[in-house]
């Protein structure tokens, strides 16, 4: 079983977490002011690397906080984990 190191609780089984996806998708500020292309890219286009990936997880069966994990999508090795930088809007 994959273990994710929660920065608050320590290493826990992956089944305690809910996946939140790519952490690179920053919501553009004013929807009226951004171009269609920028908005479409925010909603539909994600980083999908074969290798290190920055992603969000919620420790939903634990402390319930959102965390930011850098994990290799090929080997599943966790490279780092930290509290999520900003409030998460899933």
């Amino acid at each position: 079983m994959m273990l994710l190191p929660c920065p608050y609780c320590g290493p826990r089984d992956v089944t305690e977490f809910t996946y939140g996806g790519d952490d690179g998708t920053v919501r553009p500020g004013d929807p009226q002011a951004v171009s269609d292309a920028r908005w479409v890219s925010y909603v539909y286009i994600r980083d999908n690397p074969r290798g290190p990936h920055d992603e969000l997880w919620q420790h939903s069966a634990g402390c319930r906080r959102w965390i930011r994990v850098r994990r290799d999508t090929l080997t599943h090795q966790v490279l780092s984990s930290a509290p999520a930088a900003q409030p998460v809007q899933p």
């Binding site: 079983m1 994959m2 996946y19 074969r50 999508t73 090929l74 080997t75 599943h76």
Partner: peptide, 13 residues
Amino acid sequence: DMYNSYGQRSNLP
């Protein structure tokens, strides 16, 4: 498995 992966292998959950 519900998270991004290119690992073509099985996991227990």
